[in-house]
Every structure is written in C-alpha cells, then in structure tokens.
Computed example of a mutant assay.
Amino acid sequence: MRVAKKMKVALLLVTIAAPYSVSEAAAQCNISDAKLEEAILVKPELRDRDNRQIVSDLRTLRDAALILWSYDRQDDCNRILANIRELLASPSIGELGNNDEDEADQQLAAGEPALHSGGRAIGNRHKAGASPLIDIDELGPGLRVDEILGAEVRSSDDKIIGEVRNVVIGTRDRQDYVIVASGGFFIPGKESIVVPLRFLQINQERESFFLRVSEVEMRKVPLMPDQDYEWLADQAWRIRNDAIFESMMPTPDRFGRQ
C-alpha cells in the first residue's frame, strides 16, 4: 500500500473540515457519537484487509478527539468527530484523499522530529561509570512492545542509527526482527533496515538499543527491499541479511562482555 494511501485520512481532513456554528462549537463532545466501532462492524470495506490502515487512521482521529475532550476543547473535539462521521458516510472511503505520493512524502516529512526518540544526538557510553549493556535474550523482565517502538538505536561507537518503527515476530524459522528507520516515516528501499532482534543490546534504563557494530560497518547492511514485507517470505534474502550481522559480531564484543 502506498504512503499516500496509508495517510490519506489524515491528509483529507484539511479538505473536508467544515466550520461550526456557535451553538455546535459550544456543545458537549461525546466520543461515542462518532459511531466508529459500529461502522467497522457493519461496513465490509472497513473490514477489508487492504484497508486496515484506514481503520487505524480513523481510530487515531478518535483518540485525538478524546485528548481534546480531556483538555475541555469541546468545539475542536466535535469538529474531529464530524470529520470521522463524514468519512464513514463516504460511499468508498478507500478512494478518498490525495494520491500524490510526492506531495504525501513532503507532508509527512514535516512531522519528522529534529532528534530521534530519546532526544540524544550525542551518546554517553564514553562516560566513566556507564552501566554495562544487557543482551536482549538475558533481559528480565521482558520488554513491552511500547518500550520497543520508537526507541532509538545506536552503534557500538554510540552514534545514532535510527529508531525502531516496527517489530516482526513469529517467523517460521523463529527469527524476530526490528525495523529501524533512520529517516522518520518509512521510505522503502531508502532508509529502513531489518535488524535481527537477537543482535541488539539495551541500556540499563531501557531507553536505547545498541548494535554491536560501528556506524561505518552499518553501511554494509542492505536496505529493507519493500514496504509490504514481502521479504519475510524471501528466506534467501533474510539469510543473507542475517549473515551480514553475524559476520560483524565482535568476539569478545566491544562493550566489554565476554
């Protein structure tokens, strides 16, 4: 699915938002008025596998309305609910919005933070007394998904590589992966790499992941070949990708662990 199509619900808001009257703006916002979950149950298009991102976008809009309600922004909350209802009323929601991928990329780039998650462009592993890192398979208790997604990933020389944007678990050969994107939003074939989870370490604070290879060595790693994750079924590609990480693993590793 193209980037533009994935984000079309968000981009569409600027074109369908209608001004509210004074009486509407003052009305108490009731999140259930969106009738979103009811629509998902009865509208086949919203249960189509190809439209999962649209459903996710609609739920994100509903969550935004809830946040505005919690800050007593009743008029803004109602405005978002109206957008949701208008989208749901469309005969074919999947065909709405702007399909210009270049324009979508430009819009999405505006949301890229100046610093990656964690906010530290310069690491602190060089400081005296820095706590040792922990291998993922020795971590206890385990990590929640929300502790993994968005976490920054650093090299052995403590330079930022990017941040975790997705997690793949449960492959037939029991290999788990994190997708590390260095350019913010996914741009397939340009800025995302597939990192075997077992090769990661994490700091004691559980704020940052570390690869046991340098930033220069990371240039040997191939880019994620497609955004639709077809590479998951390409065992030959995954074997080659994993072998590159395996070949770069130091013995003993560079963080002082034997």
Rank of each mutant, 00 (worst) to 15 (best):
I160V: 14
D135S: 07
D135W: 10
Q74R: 06
C77N: 03
A64E: 12
A65S: 13
N78S: 06
E138M: 13
L96N: 00
G150M: 01
N99W: 01
A65T: 06
L133G: 02
S117N: 14
R120C: 01
N83S: 07
F185P: 02
V178A: 11
H126F: 01
F199T: 15
A109Y: 02
R79N: 10
V164P: 11
L61E: 06
A110W: 10
I67N: 14
A130Y: 14
I93N: 02
E191Q: 13
V195E: 04
P141R: 10
H126G: 00
L133E: 00
N124M: 05
R165G: 12
I122S: 09
G119L: 08
F185C: 10
A121G: 02
G170K: 02
C77M: 00
S156W: 10
Y71C: 12
D157K: 07
E112P: 00
S131F: 11
N203C: 12
Q107H: 11
L200T: 08
I93Y: 09
I202S: 14
T171F: 12
E101V: 07
E205Q: 05
S156K: 04
I80G: 01
I187S: 13
D146E: 06
K127Y: 01
S155I: 03
G142P: 01
L200D: 12
F186Y: 11
R154G: 04
K190E: 10
G162E: 03
G94I: 04
G97M: 10
R85E: 01
I148E: 05
D157E: 15
I179M: 15
A110Y: 11
D173G: 09
L68V: 00
Q74G: 07
A65V: 03
G184E: 14
D100S: 04
Q204F: 14
E112Y: 04
A89C: 11
G170F: 00
L81W: 00
Y71N: 09
D75V: 03
R62H: 09
Q204C: 11
L68S: 05
A114S: 08
S90C: 03
D63S: 07
E163A: 12
E205I: 08
S156G: 02
D75L: 00
N98T: 05
V164R: 03
S155G: 07
D75M: 03
R172C: 15
N98G: 06
G123Q: 07
E103R: 08
A82V: 12
L149M: 12
D158I: 13
A151S: 13
G170R: 09
V195N: 06
S192Y: 15
